[in-house]
């Protein structure tokens, strides 16, 4: 595996000049993933969302490789088409260079509106990597809930009101849904752990056939934490087991990180403005319910990974 020093010398494919907010997780995720491509050209596909809008303001582009944005819900189909073109042109001797195909979509563009297009692309077996940059809401349109929004979060369409305390539904388990497509590789990772991201990106890029990565990509605006604390907040997501790191390789589930001790989910929730209402006196039961959701999901995951289903020691 490459060292950080070596990685710092890789020619960047996503460069400065974009207009993502300072401290946005998307730029970090994209650079880390693209740096894992070795000895090949890349075509990036991108769904509508913060990443696309901030990185391709005409006549500029922050992409140092070929890039296509089509619409919001069709990054899966669009990158399928590019990959099909690659196979056709290669077969017919019109191009000779090697290419990798990587599509990025937000959680809205992936869990929700683009799920069908993504599912189709995965089922058809294109040699592509689809990366979901999960920040748990439609940030680009002003922080509306998606099916990736965590239970209890205050968003502009699941506002914490006098009667309803934020989002009422648990998150959709997209990584499991993708794994259920029996694709070559599906994994969940987070940017606090660069080695984990790099390793998984490399595997996803190098396997034959479709691969899926779900990356926790914090949004300081939508989550309302202290912007410089991005690594800390991501780490808390992993340590509290809100965002477990695991991979599914050819059908085999594997847990990649097991927290040493039981860190309650409130440590992840507390620094974030979107969960502030949960900490009002009288709302203890809401946090308790979120904790139960996290714990039961964790146990189910351990079971799938062939590990003893037990919570970390308190």
């Amino acid at each position: 595996m490459a060292t950080l020093k070596e990685l710092s010398r890789v020619e960047e494919r996503f460069v400065g000049g974009h207009r993502l907010c300072a401290g946005c997780g998307h730029g970090i995720s994209v650079r880390m993933i693209l740096n894992a491509v070795e000895d090949a050209n890349v075509v990036v596909g991108c769904a509508t969302g913060c990443l696309e809008v901030a990185s391709t303001i005409y006549p500029y582009t922050a992409w140092n490789c070929s890039f296509i944005h089509n619409a919001f819900e069709n990054a899966g189909a669009t990158i399928s088409g590019v990959e099909a073109a690659y196979r056709a042109l290669k077969k017919r001797g019109k191009i000779d260079r090697d290419f990798k195909f990587i599509a990025f979509g937000g959680d809205g563009g992936t869990y929700d509106i683009g799920l069908q297009s993504l599912s189709g692309a995965m089922e058809r077996g294109h040699n592509i990597v689809y990366v979901c940059l999960d920040n748990g809401a439609y940030m680009n349109t002003g922080i509306q809930r998606s099916s990736a929004t965590p239970t209890g979060a205050d968003t502009t369409t699941s506002p914490a009101g006098k009667v309803i305390p934020g989002k009422q539904q648990p998150r959709k388990d997209l990584t499991a849904i993708m794994a259920a497509h029996n694709i070559s590789y599906a994994a969940q990772t987070a940017i606090n752990n660069w080695q984990d991201v790099h390793k998984k990106a490399k595997k996803a890029i190098e396997v034959e056939g479709p691969a899926f990565l779900n990356v926790l990509s914090p949004c300081p605006r939508g989550w309302r934490y202290n912007t410089p604390d991005i690594v800390q907040i991501t780490k808390l997501a992993v340590e509290t087991r809100f965002w477990p790191l695991y991979e599914v390789e050819n059908g085999k589930w594997k847990l990649n990180y097991k927290p040493k001790k039981y860190v309650p989910v409130e440590e992840f929730l507390k620094p974030q403005g979107r969960f502030r209402h949960l900490f009002k006196p009288g709302n203890e039961h809401l946090i308790k319910a979120i904790q139960e959701e996290v714990d039961s999901r964790w146990l189910a995951l351990l079971e799938r990974c062939g590990e003893t289903p037990e919570l970390p020691p308190r």
């Binding site: 089509n70 819900e73 189909a77 099909a84 073109a85 056709a88 042109l89 069908q116 297009s117």
Partner: peptide, 19 residues
Amino acid sequence: VESEHSAMSAAIGAAAGGA
């Protein structure tokens, strides 16, 4: 493809790819 939306989307990807 799994829909016409994806049919045209994939055709767009392919044509943009040079096909």
